[in-house]
Write a protein that binds this DNA or RNA. Structure first.
Lengths: 325, 325
DNA sequence: TTGTATGCGTTATCAA
DNA sequence: TTGATAACGCATACAA
């Protein structure tokens, strides 16, 4: 800035002002400064700016997995909204383990973000302490609780699963199985579904859990396992993701089974593909765009110091009925 | 650090040393410092550290779209390798427009990253100038050129497409169509395929281009359009992504066509799902994990100042033969 | 093994 | 409308 100033014939401070609040600089010097910036190829140092102003214009976003479309699509709207306000997103994967998450949180906080987005509501005690100590807005998404660290935007996983169980029973399905990923939220959905379905029908639910990342292959394997070990004819399979459900459709087709007549399927997430499958997939829709947007607005409200945002926002969900169940 | 030092009975500098190079501090004071950090909940300020040391330990990664698995899976190995060396990744979407990319590059450079990863080899003149001026390692991935800004790790899109055309002709397909996304690299693949196929067979290739993001729906629409307007019986469809190819499989099935007998399909990307589809999908494999890893190693070599990495690395590709073609 | 002095490139405060 | 000066919180060089 000093070098730019020398060329423009002003001091370093005036250059700073020209960049941060042009209205405070006369049009003439502003022009000279911009010319000088042009010839020098000057790029401001946001690190120094953040140190001096105590505002980094950086927002940390921590998600379990970048490759999972449900998180990345939520981040899309979250990022877009915040970027329009001049914030940049520092994005990291945490995996599904709170201990790993804690490490990531620590390195992120050392960059002095202006706010943090976390996925889920279960974090290590030390992580909570660090977050509280940072004294910045913290928004937990993709789940809901009355006692968030700071803010919370999401929905009840148990409620979605119970609704699916009730939907299944209403449609007359008296047998059911689950194919579920190993992460805590998927497990919570499975358990809620199983409890509610057994409560309503009295028949026990066959379960297949895979530890690793969800995939078409796991969905196929899951259905194969269930069909080979249980009688699920005319029953329904509840999957912890659309991807697994898609695998189920493929395996069913490969076995000559008709969906939904021989076996019905319900997914979770209602991804873009759900409507395009044959048969189209019944799924639980969570509006990820709204989720990301609402989280961004909550953070912004706190950052800009406007009206206090609600501590907890339930964005709800919806079962989208299609052909598979 | 000064506060921590006061509690531990040492100066600020000693605290700094305890954190950056513990071996330079006596075991006894090290313990006292860690105790003091514990009680104060101290989190170092990486901003100040970066400003003082002129090393941010931050690496910018710019990809067209986060939701596209081909980019995010490449980033996974890139990030993992660099994180193991203490670097953090500042990730942003650029879209497919060089003008948008330029803006993102500017804001990223203001954070003073230690290196930059870019997707593709086409960037605005001003972007190149800024990058060069930053005097940091720059690695361009997912394409190949002899004249990268600095480093380059990727493969030839034209070569993959020509190989697919030759593969098709070898298998006796004499008619072909393409379904392609609108981005520049997809377009380049399509053109190379069309040229080579027409050169080999003399028969012209039917083309369907969709502007927006690839999806199952676009794949279905694409096949529908091609079948309704051209005679492609016993021909082959080359799609610019596996996702489109998956849509083609679904549409073919919905129309009672058998793949590959009535119509053959080749995808691009060889995603996890390709092997699990019915029929399984023939596709062009690009080893995204290797790509990300190689890019990371190239950056590290330059950063750690070891042996100079090759300016340009071609990681090649492979056509994975499965049932769909 | 530890400490002192200095500077990194900005923004905030105050004065002119 | 502009400038001088002092932080911001750390790392580096040098000294003890």
């Amino acid at each position: 800035m000093a070098a730019v100033g020398r060329i423009a014939g002003v001091s370093q401070v005036t250059v700073s002002r020209a960049l941060s609040d042009p209205s405070k600089v006369s049009p003439d010097t502003l022009r000279r400064i911009h010319d000088a910036i042009e010839v020098t190829g000057f790029v401001p140092n946001a690190l120094a700016g953040a140190l001096a102003s105590r505002k980094s214009k950086l927002i940390s976003a921590l998600v379990p997995a970048l490759t999972n479309i449900v998180y990345s699509s939520m981040l899309k709207s979250f990022s877009a909204r915040l970027r329009s306000e001049g914030y940049e997103i520092l994005l990291s994967e945490t995996g599904f383990d709170p201990a790993d998450e804690e490490r990531v949180i620590a390195t992120h906080l050392s960059r002095r973000p202006d706010a943090v987005l976390l996925t889920g509501i279960h974090h290590s005690a030390h992580a909570r302490k660090m977050l509280l100590g940072a004294e910045i807005p913290v928004v937990e998404v993709w789940d809901i609780t009355d006692t968030p660290i700071d803010l919370c935007v999401g929905f009840s996983h148990a409620a979605t699963a119970r609704a699916v169980a009730e939907y299944a029973v209403e449609r007359g399905y008296m047998k059911a199985g689950t194919i579920s990923a190993g992460d805590e939220r998927a497990h919570r959905r499975k358990t809620a579904f199983v409890d509610r379905f057994e409560e309503l029908t009295g028949s026990s639910v066959a379960q297949y859990d895979h530890g690793s990342l969800a995939s078409l292959g796991q969905g196929r394997k899951g259905l194969a396992h269930l069909l080979d070990n249980y009688d699920l004819r005319n029953g329904l399979i509840f999957c912890s993701s659309d991807l697994l459900a898609q695998g189920v459709l493929i395996e069913a087709h490969a076995r000559g089974l008709t969906v939904p007549d021989d076996i019905a399927v319900i997914g979770f997430g209602d991804q873009e593909a759900a409507a395009e499958l044959e048969p189209s997939l019944t799924s639980v829709r969570v509006d990820r765009t709204t989720l990301g947007l609402t989280a961004a607005e909550a953070v912004l409200a706190r950052l800009e110091g406007k009206d206090a945002p609600p501590r907890s926002t339930d964005i709800g969900f919806e079962i989208i009925t299609r052909d598979s169940a």
